[in-house]
Simulated assay, not measured.
Amino acid sequence: MTENDGWRLFRGDREVRPLEFPAAPPWRQFGGTEPGRRARHRPYLIGRTEADVVSAALHLRRPLLVTGHPGTGKSSLAHAIAHELALGPVLQWPVNSRSVLKDALYGYDAIGRLRETHLLKERGGPEPDIGTFVRLGPLGTALVPRDRPRMLLVDELDKGDVDLPNDLLTVFEDGEFEIPELSRLPDTQAEVSVLTHGTDGERVVVERGLVRCREFPVVVITSNGERDFPPAFLRRCVRLDLPDPDEERLRDIVAAHLGEEALSGVDDLLYAFLNRRAPGELATDQLLNAVFLRKGGMNLDAEGLLDAVLHRLGGAV
């Protein structure tokens, strides 16, 4: 083994060598205290001006529309707010081209209920509880009436259907929605217990099919700017554009995640990163990856190390 060769976990020589894996980067550590959830209370640096915009959205009970290039910390901001304000686990709705509003509000397993009804009738049992087949989505769970709001992250809304922002307007304005499958039930079934979004198995009672919040949830909506939103939607949001971090902020980010000692001997990485970075082409976490590998003894020069982990985010691979 050559000097500084210990970082090579895989060598491609087909020799079996059981080993103890080294510690993962802080941002890739799993196994939080709550089942099914990663620990997300990691360092998050934000300027005073940007923090004031967040506070304005909180005061106004308006969704915060966060824009910026990939890797500027848009999604992480939601986790930082939830941690600092003790709002509990973040409810996440990752939007894609097939996303519709109903999926975020609730799901109803009609086929499962029909199947269960037939099975119970054959055995002479009672009709199954409809609440067993209704589960609130992330937005629906965020609107459950509580004394303290929940945090909802609507991630990459610009990837959704062009009509989706307008579909959200009524729910955001009214702070409520109806579950028709429950509102049509007789008065004897006015209250139905349904599951909420998440892995904790929480159930809440829905009265006459209406879910209406007491405190409007803290809503963070992220966008990579792939398309514009309707003026009516923008008017109802507080907008925050996160800038690309400069050299000083990059140093602060590295120190916050990896410690002050990580700044020693990484000037070449910072210089190469800043030289390579064009708007929207590189993300801050890519620099963190390079610094972490340098700390672990990866014996490549700055250009070679950055070539390994800094692939441009635009264009072909």
Rank of each mutant, 00 (worst) to 15 (best):
K102M: 14
H83C: 12
L77H: 05
D301K: 04
V16K: 07
I130C: 03
T141K: 07
D129K: 00
D241V: 14
D147I: 05
Q29K: 14
R38V: 15
P186K: 13
T222D: 08
M298H: 06
G175L: 03
A110I: 07
S183E: 07
E122T: 06
P180T: 04
E303W: 03
T117Y: 00
G12N: 01
P165Y: 00
E15I: 14
R38A: 15
A190K: 12
R277S: 10
R135I: 03
R8P: 06
A57F: 05
L105A: 08
V266D: 01
P231S: 05
L250W: 00
G131Y: 01
L120M: 12
R42K: 12
L293Y: 03
F273I: 12
F216M: 15
S75E: 06
E207M: 08
N275H: 13
D158W: 00
P243L: 01
E261T: 14
L85A: 12
V220F: 08
V90S: 11
D52T: 09
V90W: 12
V291K: 01
P138E: 11
D161M: 15
A51S: 08
G31A: 12
P89T: 11
R150M: 11
L136E: 14
D241F: 09
R236I: 03
V171A: 05
R8Y: 03
P63I: 02
D147M: 11
L77N: 05
R212V: 00
L139K: 05
D5Y: 04
L101W: 07
K121M: 14
G297E: 06
F133C: 08
A232R: 07
L168K: 00
L120K: 12
L263T: 01
G124S: 06
R38L: 11
N96F: 13
T141Y: 07
N275K: 14
A80S: 13
A142E: 09
E34T: 14
W7Y: 14
H197P: 07
D301H: 07
Q189Y: 02
E191R: 14
V206P: 06
H118G: 04
D187A: 13
P22F: 08
R113V: 09
L274G: 06
P63E: 01
V53S: 00
V206Q: 05
G265N: 11
A272N: 13
K74W: 03
E247V: 14
H79E: 15
A262G: 04
N4Q: 10
F30D: 09
A256D: 02
P25W: 00
T67D: 10
G304Y: 02
P217V: 07
G297R: 02
A142C: 11
T170Y: 10
V291S: 05
F10H: 06
E261L: 13
A290G: 11
A256Q: 00
D167H: 12
H41W: 01
A272I: 10
F273G: 09
K102Q: 15
G265A: 10
A278P: 02
V219S: 09
S97I: 06
A262R: 07
R17V: 10
H118V: 15
H311P: 05
P230I: 08
H79Q: 11
E50R: 01
R14E: 13
F216A: 13
G198Q: 09
S183L: 04
